[in-house]
Nucleic acid binder design. Structure first.
Lengths: 231, 231
DNA sequence: AATCTCTGCCTCAATCCTGCCGCGATCCTG
DNA sequence: CAGGATCGCGGCAGGATTGAGGCAGAGATT
């Protein structure tokens, strides 16, 4: 069930350390240290995504990408050195799905991998979906920034919308305050936990203004919040 | 319950001020001022996350990271000076989870710490699994923090949930109070044995409120408890 | 410039959780 | 069977967590 990634780089350090990191994230990783080896390996063990260093001896990344593209539409992410931007242009025009300049953080790499895999369509885009959410009486349309409860429009601010969206995306699933913070602001912002409570309070208040029995946002003491699905 | 962080920096000012800030946030912080000391300390007091300065006398951050990686997959955040980008490349491709360039805001540091811990925590769940447990009439879904008996929802607190999960994970197997304590709190906490009894009492009571014949949690005199599987 | 809105956070009171104690009942061991 | 160990249960008090109101600053709007 684990997604298999192919990692190609001639620098042994990068190869092993990045592989370790990815495996820690639950991916299976096949490592190759040059293009020819990678090409051969990919025939036998196809991967969901390939991560290629551009500069490699014997067969460089762009050439490898070309060969891969002859046989498969497998998503590809390029690794490039920071200073040679030419490579980026080259790689992308050749059909890479994304690129990352060294140095890169593990966080960035993971984000790109997830994004590319998501775009590639295999996985359910649960986290970032822009789709309308219709959970019983609740309707959330991100594109129109529209929220309604039992037909009545409920005016939410951006933050409130994002939080409710995160909750309603997986009805019944518990979200910690940290997770909600991620959903509304992203990784790099730290706020008081209790700020989430404040927003939840405001969301509840707005919904109760339309339906004073509204109780779909449940508090789980010591854990977080969840959106209760229809019974 | 407090998460322990390891902070390694040769600058005493940074060491103490950052440590203070982190402690104010509720973390336990072990501080070390060089790599060797840190390595020794980490053996005895393992931390959930290490924050390493890259430039240090005797053993620098990357070297320390290497040594740490030989023994553990502990998440690591690097601190780097803004001007030497080389360090970043080196550290990150070596397997650090993230990096922060000095000077950094406390807010960013906290955000990164949380993000890394979250990722790490999700990956390596302390106990056995995050899967739903379905044992006959019992249903335990950690993601939803949902517990039901014969279809009825039974509302459990976090501690109760963890204990029941530990028991139900291996139906028929005896769990000592110590083992249950580990499952619910981790192995860093000492509590009165009888406290487990109290929780078991409350779990039983809650289940009996739905089914007064409930007797699946069996007491093994002098040993512990076990969850009785279906006959 | 004068509002208005959004938002993060603070305070206070109410509620919930939990560790532990004591008592009586039960269970083993010799 | 007696004595001691162990356990179930009620209850309590402190601590942790949460809901609600409110406030001030930053931006946006008028």
């Amino acid at each position: 069930m684990a997604t298999r990634l192919a990692l190609v780089d001639d620098d042994q350090n990068i190869l092993t350390s990045v592989a370790l990191a990815l495996e820690a994230e639950g991916y299976e990783v096949d490592t190759y240290f040059d293009g020819e080896q990678a090409l051969a390996g990919l025939m036998r063990r196809p991967a969901a995504l390939a991560i290629l260093d551009i500069k490699m001896p014997r067969m460089d990344g762009t050439e490898l990408l070309g060969k891969i593209r002859q046989k498969s539409a497998m998503p590809v992410i390029f690794l490039t050195s920071k200073d040679d931007e030419l490579d980026e242009a080259l790689g992308l025009s050749l059909g890479a799905d994304d690129y990352i300049t060294k140095p890169f953080s593990q966080r960035l790499l993971l984000a790109r991998i997830r994004a590319v895999l998501r775009r590639a369509g295999g996985q359910a885009p649960l986290s970032e979906s822009n789709d309308t959410i219709a959970q019983g009486d609740l309707l959330l349309d991100p594109d129109r920034h529209l929220c309604s409860w039992k037909g009545d429009e409920v005016k939410l601010t951006v933050t409130e919308f994002l939080l409710l969206q995160a909750l309603a995306l997986r009805p019944g699933h518990v979200k910690s305050r940290d997770q909600l913070m991620d959903a509304a602001y992203g990784d790099d912002i730290f706020l008081e936990d209790r700020t989430i409570d404040s927003h939840i309070k405001r969301i509840r208040r707005k919904f109760r203004a339309h339906d004073n029995l509204f109780d779909r946002i449940e508090t789980l003491y010591g854990i977080g919040y969840k959106y209760k699905p229809d019974a």
